[in-house]
Design a protein around this nucleic acid. Structure first.
Lengths: 242, 242
DNA sequence: CGCTTACGTTTACGTCGTATAGGGATGGCA
DNA sequence: TGCCATCCCTATACGACGTAAACGTAAGCG
């Protein structure tokens, strides 16, 4: 048993005072910390309980199921995004700047929690729009409001929103794909595990792998975003810039 | 027990003749079929074994672990992509057309196996480049070769490759996000579950949700791809068009 | 003080991935 | 033909998982 001390029958409720009562935020931040530290596969109800000095079943008071807990983690990421957005400038010069700010903040949050990023893909593919976590919906609202205020009609705003989301999430996902095969190795080629790539069948990949392993960084993200957005301003749609 | 008939001690080896011997391809295609039919969570070693009239442990001869089996599913998707690409025209007019063909084929394969798509995100975030399934590496090789042959230098080809991949995967992922909350409902608003979206706090999202639920289709994919590629041809990089 | 409600524990069940050992068919060689 | 090695699948078992149900026990109220 995870009893604090002695050979008592079990953890006494008075021990709780040591760590304070449980609540949703404590559960979620412990879960996120655990995932950051040891990866998604380390996150089990029992393990998370142990992390909080509590039995696994206690967590079900704050998340209806493990899937709900994972949705909670997604929400936690978006809450961090909201904080990050609140931290710097309030309003943006124009809608493009607004989208860039959003994109950059999302990028930063994702890079800060690389192990949690797969959740964004899996949970958002599992949960229908209306049931997404509140913070996610607030994010959508802000982006859409930004676009509508800029003069885009409903259909165009929705198209821009989708393109924005696709690029942002795709970019982060590609940015986080692991390239290093053997971290202990000093030689770059061995580090990348190039000896696994047949020189006969994969010559181009082999010679490009080193370049591929470089990150695009926030600049790459911004550049692609601009390229996509140009299509909606230079193209058919009607859009103001204030 | 999953015995064919009677009360014999267990399935006899002679029963194998009924279905033929197991092999990797049979295992993977049964796994993909199961995922297509019942979703990723239905895929367990025991269940897949049952599907093949075999005990779970038999599968370990064809996949070293469950994670390896999932990587096998990713490979299966890319094999289907290769088939699809081989089916239509052989060579492309230029590199842009080549990328569009690739993108379209990937889009089609993903839409044909929506339940398997999360694997692309999760497994490619879990496995380093050099250990990706062979079919995935062949895909990379083809795209990179296309770009180098078009005259892009190593760095630019790698940047284009990353942007291409990011857009493609992001687009598919957004396209497959479920929008319908209650499929039994006929009224569009209830179907989307708009009553869950506070009219006060999420007004824009609420009014845009219907438009958001529409798909961008292959056209949207192609449009965004062109927008991104323009950046690399009109911009600084040097690239021919043959 | 006693009652209610909220919170955490205990116990238990079925399923999961997989280590290990065993058995029965198969194919090569005498 | 008979024997043995090899391959393929089964049998059994273990620990961990998610979670239903029932049970204390502490906290806050009158």
């Amino acid at each position: 048993m995870a009893n604090g001390s002695g050979t008592g029958p079990a953890r006494r409720a008075s021990d709780r005072g040591r760590y304070g009562r449980l609540n949703r935020e404590r559960v979620l931040s412990a879960a996120l910390a655990l995932v950051d530290r040891e990866g998604l596969s380390a996150l089990s109800m029992r393990r998370l309980g142990a992390e909080l000095n509590v039995e696994a079943m206690a967590l079900y008071r704050y998340a209806a199921s493990k899937d709900a807990l994972l949705d909670g983690l997604v929400e936690a990421l978006y809450l961090e995004l909201e904080e990050q957005l609140a931290a710097d400038a309030g309003e943006d010069a124009d809608w493009r700047a607004g989208l860039h700010r959003f994109a950059r903040a999302t990028y930063d949050v994702c890079l800060a929690h690389p192990q949690a990023v797969p959740l964004l893909a899996t949970r958002l593919l599992a949960v229908p729009l209306a049931r997404r976590p509140a913070a996610v919906l607030r994010d959508h609202e802000r982006v859409l409001a930004l676009l509508r205020k800029a003069g885009f009609d409903e259909a165009t705003a929705s198209a821009v929103f989708r393109a924005f989301t696709a690029w942002l999430h795709g970019y982060v996902s590609v940015e986080l794909r692991p390239m290093v095969d053997n971290p202990d190795e000093t030689d770059p080629a061995f580090r990348l595990g190039l000896h696994r790539l047949s020189a006969k069948e994969l010559p181009t990949l082999r010679e490009t792998a080193a370049a591929l392993a470089e990150r695009g960084g926030p600049e790459g993200l911004a550049a692609g975003l601009d390229a996509l957005l140009d299509r909606f301003t230079n193209g058919s749609a009607s859009a103001a810039s204030g």
